[in-house]
Design a protein around this nucleic acid. Structure first.
Lengths: 162, 162
DNA sequence: GGCATATATTTGTCTTGACAAATATATTTC
DNA sequence: GAAATATATTTGTCAAGACAAATATATGCC
């Protein structure tokens, strides 16, 4: 593209885009998507093919132990229908197992398989640690916890007041 | 759900979920999605039916004036194909106009209509201001700029080092 | 117990956005 | 200036997630 409106990239801001600084909303989206991309890439490099959503599911399943699909869905903030399909995929990959729930015949008991635990401990958790360390390397401990704190405060406020 | 794993909601953390604090990734996703929801709701209340993506497009179009579809797509970090379809919708709503580009017959000149400018100035910008003010109300000026700064640093680091 | 209501899972449908292919036009290279 | 290459837009296709409907089972109330 040429002409018409050559306001474009006047002297490239550090973010590779013109003029004004990105808004908070944009910034959040960008950080989030870079983080997702980086973790997926890192896992893929290690031969583990998981989407970020699947990574989250494995993580929660590992963290909280056996639980129903609904509980898992809530834990990763995913729709129930979407969860069913992710479970299909993860089951096909051999990373988790659906068994009937002992007390409730409507529900499932979702549990990592051995392969699932291994994938988490040897690969997924390591990859995400590596990325998160790299990402937060430019922040001091104090700044890291401030960042966390500020985001939580913004979140509560948004949930309450709007 | 009952039994099996009643680690659930031991004494509800402020976030309404069990145990450990949300990770940075989760937090970013949650803040972002609350922000989007709140802005869409606010606009809808004012009788303006725009998705958050459409809101961003209008905003950029207003901010940067007439530009090609590709430039606009880059400005809002949206895929070109997705942009075409959003432009279709926004044109149907009467908020913007596609005209041929004077110098480049491949390209378009995207421009807000009068209705588009009005929608931005009377409604969309006001709504987003209201939400962003509410969201950041719990942060001091200093904290707000720290938040921005930290996020930018994390973003640059992620883009460079991974 | 039996019925109304609530919940767990699955499936269907819709919208969105990424990616790739197709088309038209510009730009560069020789 | 012709061929090769690059770019703008559109369209097709796919996967993901939201939402709603369907089904099975639980729970509460009489």
């Amino acid at each position: 593209m040429r002409g018409m409106n050559d306001i474009t990239h006047p002297a490239n801001s550090p973010l590779g885009r013109p003029g004004d600084a990105p808004t908070l909303g944009m910034l959040l989206a960008m950080v989030r998507s870079e983080m997702v991309r980086a973790i997926e890439a890192e896992m893929s490099n290690q031969g583990l093919d998981l989407s970020f959503t699947q990574y989250l599911i494995i993580k929660k399943a590992q963290q909280l132990g056996a639980m129903s699909a609904t509980e898992l869905a809530r834990a990763v903030e995913l729709d129930g229908g979407a969860m069913t399909r992710q479970l299909d995929q993860l089951e096909r990959k051999g990373l988790l197992r659906r068994s009937p729930h002992a007390q409730d015949r409507r529900a499932l008991r979702i549990e990592l398989t051995e392969a699932g635990h291994t994938a988490w401990q040897n690969t997924a958790s390591v990859c995400s640690q590596r990325v998160m360390n790299a990402a937060q390397a430019s922040l001091s401990r104090t700044e890291q916890s401030q960042l966390h704190d500020y985001l939580e405060r913004v979140l509560y406020t948004l949930r309450d007041k709007t």
